[in-house]
Amino acid sequence: MSKSIIFVLGFVLSGIFISAQTLDKQAPQGFDVEKKEIPHGKIDTINYESKTVGTQRKALVYTPPVFKKGNKYPVLYLLHGIGGDEKEWFKNGTPQIILDNLYAQGKLTPMIVVLPNGRAMKDDRATGNIMAKDKVKAFATFEKDLLNDLIPFIEKKYPVKKDRENRAIAGLSMGGGQTLNFGLGNIDKFAWVGGFSSAPNTKEPQKLLPNPAKAKELKLLWISCGDQDGLMPFSKRTSDYLTENKIPHIFYIEPGGHDFKVWKNDLFLFSQLLFKPIDQEEISNLLKSE
């Protein structure tokens, strides 16, 4: 083996080691506080034509502080919960602040983040009975809207990389269930998948992954939940199934319940792992350590 190859391998492996060892298990104080002295990304509202729903739909798009139209970027699709819409993360999870702060520390691979409305129906507002059958069904319908309408729109309007290795999906609660359903059901479309406190809409493991070995193609499979969250069984049964089938993944049990304190921490950790070489086992062991 040539010295140059050895050097490159050493560099890559050291990067994996450093990323695992420097990842905080819990976001530090002030991680979600806006700092005026650092560069800031931009949040835009976009309207896209949804053939799936038969109407124009809205989404928010975050472009990073380092954004330049001449460059191409990977994309994270970040999904909300059953009581929210495309603004839920923005209002309650402040992803733009969390990510700006991480960029200022040099901890993120530059990426575009899309915050869609995961309730794919003509009246997609979170009003009235949010548990109504048609509204719950609309969260499943969003899979077609995402794949056939939103992703093509983003890839036409923004300078993004269009291969699966540069496409991630993550979400909280109902959006966490969507993430596991859509991400594991479309491994040819997504290489990075993160379910935060996934809700009962998550398919049973055998239906989620009838061919478990397929999940080995993922760059990252992240499952997390608060230790006081009543929805823990849905995350645990998925992780147990993956473990039984020897599928690499991270199962992070963190302090907290079913709320944005947990989900903001998830975004803080998950975003740092995206679109870079990582060792899931190394990171999993780190997160489990005392």
Rank of each mutant, 00 (worst) to 15 (best):
K214F: 08
D123A: 12
P205D: 00
Y103F: 15
W192H: 04
K216D: 03
K207G: 00
T127C: 14
L218E: 03
R167F: 13
F196K: 00
T109C: 11
K156M: 15
S173K: 05
R164E: 14
G183F: 00
I187G: 09
K161H: 12
F153G: 14
M174A: 08
M174I: 09
S198F: 07
D100R: 07
N186D: 01
L184R: 01
M131Y: 11
A168R: 04
G177I: 03
N129P: 11
I169R: 12
L150M: 15
D100P: 08
P210G: 02
P212F: 03
N148H: 13
L150N: 10
N181Q: 09
A191M: 01
P116K: 07
T109E: 13
L102Q: 13
D123G: 10
G177C: 03
L172V: 13
E217F: 02
F196G: 00
S173P: 12
A138D: 04
N211Q: 12
V113E: 09
K161W: 13
L172C: 13
A199I: 05
G175K: 04
P200L: 10
T127D: 15
G185H: 03
E165R: 14
F196I: 01
G177D: 03
G185C: 02
G118V: 08
T109A: 10
P159C: 09
N101P: 08
P212G: 03
D100C: 06
L172T: 08
K156N: 15
A140P: 11
N166F: 06
P116Y: 11
N201Y: 06
G176S: 03
L218T: 02
K156V: 12
A191V: 02
T202E: 05
W192S: 01
K203C: 00
V193S: 08
P116G: 13
T141I: 13
F153C: 14
A120T: 09
M121S: 08
T127V: 15
L102Y: 05
P205S: 00
K216I: 04
P210L: 02
K144Y: 10
L108M: 13
F142L: 11
K162D: 09
T202N: 05
P110N: 09
L208M: 01
V136D: 08
K203G: 00
Y158F: 08
V160N: 07
V160H: 10
T127I: 14
Y103E: 15
E217V: 03
L180T: 07
A104S: 11
V113G: 06
G175L: 05
D124F: 04
I130M: 14
V113M: 12
L180F: 07
G194T: 07
A126W: 01
D124S: 11
V113P: 05
V114A: 09
L115H: 07
K133A: 12
P205L: 00
D134G: 06
A170L: 07
M121F: 12
A199H: 06
E155Q: 15
F182M: 06
A126H: 02
N201E: 05
L115S: 09
F153Y: 15
V160A: 08
D123Q: 11
R119D: 02
L150A: 14
V136S: 10
K107R: 15
A104Y: 04
P152A: 15
Q178T: 01
L108R: 14
P205C: 01
K207Q: 03
A120N: 07
T127M: 14
A132F: 07
K219Q: 03
L220K: 03
Q206H: 04
R125V: 15
K135C: 05
A126G: 01
P212T: 03
V193I: 02
